[in-house]
Design a protein around this nucleic acid. Structure first.
Lengths: 194, 194, 194, 194
DNA sequence: AATGAATGAGTATTCATTCAT
DNA sequence: GATGAATGAATACTCATTCAT
């Protein structure tokens, strides 16, 4: 029986990449630094990712997938738009508290015009948007002329900018009432689509 | 007499920097590439900026200053928070249509955790936030527990995420009714503070 | 297992540095030129020396150490100052014939006021000087008011200037009677301390 | 009547060059820095020296000439070798106290194998050496087999190494009895040729 | 005459990537 | 499989030199 790939090493590479890239930016992060923080050799990294660019793309796609999958799940679970909105905002805040590096990484790359979004992901996001528009129209929970951008802002843009402001400017207290924050952001986000 | 400094060259360097950085990221943009696009030599650039870091900081500070100055002006002109909000959103959209690179540059750097905001700028932003909170409370146009972050997303976060979504995903039509957009986004942004 | 470090490469870098620096001066010697003469890549050099400055300092310290170590050894072996003086002069001439670049390198850097001597080396030299003064006074082989500078001249300055004159002006024949030269220089050097 | 060349500017360039080069080395000294310290423009400097290399060569030749001229003068004035030796040593010490930069510059370049001595100067030095050998033999004040190198270290090498040791290592007191030093060094230097 | 703006080749240093072991 | 030695192209920055004014 052939040796299994040591998935924990791969996971360490992924987490190390996210950490270092969120701290130093993409081009500011060297493969050597990533490998070192992951506790593997640079050569090992290259046996699993053909290039640094592919690694970063993979990570970004996964990060976006985790959000789209959650939205898909929420859509499958219930029809109420407000539940979907508060569900995804809760997910983002939870993700921020579990792994802030990962959230910073997502925010950074979603606002970085030097990296392209994988067309498949873009298409997936477009479909989610259209599904949500249709659903919203069916049960009258969104306004007539709501657009995909409006949903993007509501589900992703607003909560992430809220967190970005904290990370970037560090205003305000450090002790939040997370449940209250989620409720507040949900209310704001609903304004974007209702 | 020696040659006169060609001031247009400085401006060309600034614009080229903003363009290339918004396309390639900070570390992905080489001084040589910037100089070439500006039509000057790399050496020339260094006679006016002591380092690439200083150049980028200068550009970012100017970009942020242009926003804070506009907010200050709007605050000075009138007391209605909704006018201030729509004024700054209008300014951002106008800026996006005049010089999209500059706006991309701002969005990118505001969401990049590998660069620090100049403490002077951060303080300026904090003061603006507090002034707006006080004003809003005085005339009852904002809710009780509104925070600086709430104002940040209302004035900057939400309009910029709209634009980021367009730039990054390219959904939707290219022919906007800008006035209507501004009105819509103002309404959403007001939800963040009201 | 990864490739083994080829230790001969390090030695080649050291020798190439000494050669090129003795020919072109420190700032006149590029890292690229050194790497090329050593037959390694520039990147390789940087995996073993953190900077050009450190490389040069290392080489200079080693070169000075080789002299101070020899003096220490000679001091340990016998008490006669004249034996120590002729021993070190012999060592310098031997070194010049084995590796003239290395000697040129030493001469150059000892007479270059743009580089600092490592304080540890300076202290070592001072201590050697004081030991020699004490020893010399004990057995009456040096004059009363002999100073550290006098010993510096005797042990290092005079033999090296003799060689510098050859290298720089190229007077005289190329076929020396080295033993006689050493004897002559020793006699002159003894005048500096007796 | 045509405007005269402003000789004071030229002199300032020369002195500034000597100062900066003695502090930073040849390649470590930029033309811009030299021009600035001289209070002239870089362009002005280039109207009088075709290149940095030529400037440095000129300065070195002048520095060596000032020594050879003094030796020639001393030879013309008297026949006693010891008077010539003490005369030139006195001249070097005087020069060191009037303009230490200049002396450091001379020491550095005489021990720098990356710059070539002008063949005319070398020939002049050789002739001086031969004259001194002949004179010394005539009046029996030097030993039979004395060489040009012996004279070089007696007249230049030994006094300059004394000064180099002070500059480089900073041993010893700062308050010398210059007359006594000159006498001491003359005695040592005479050993090199007697 | 004198300036200093402008250049571009050159320098030290880094880093993605390869490959011998 | 896994390593890390080795590479060399790329990057930020400097500086001798030129030339328009």
């Amino acid at each position: 029986m052939a040796k299994k790939i040591d998935t924990s090493k791969i996971e360490r590479i992924r987490q190390a990449s996210v950490e270092i890239i969120s701290e130093c930016g993409i081009t500011g992060s060297s493969v050597a630094a990533i490998a070192q923080r992951a506790g593997v050799s640079a050569g090992y990294l290259y046996r699993h990712y053909p290039s640094k660019v592919k690694l970063v793309n993979d990570l970004l796609n996964d990060a976006l997938n985790s959000i789209t999958e959650r939205i898909d799940a929420l859509i499958g679970e219930n029809d109420r738009i407000d539940r979907i909105v508060s569900g995804i905002i809760g997910f983002i805040f939870e993700s921020a508290s579990l792994n802030p590096y990962r959230l910073k990484f997502q925010i950074m790359l979603l606002n970085d015009f030097s990296t392209e979004i994988d067309p498949a992901i873009r298409e997936q996001i477009r479909q989610i948007g259209e599904t949500l528009i249709r659903k919203g129209h069916e049960n009258g929970s969104v306004r007539k002329n709501v657009s995909i951008e409006d949903f993007y802002i509501a589900l992703v843009g607003i909560p992430m900018q809220y967190l970005a402001a904290r990370y970037k400017f560090g205003f305000g207290a450090n002790d939040w009432d997370i449940a209250a924050e989620i409720e507040k952001i949900t209310r704001i986000s609903m304004c974007a689509i209702k």
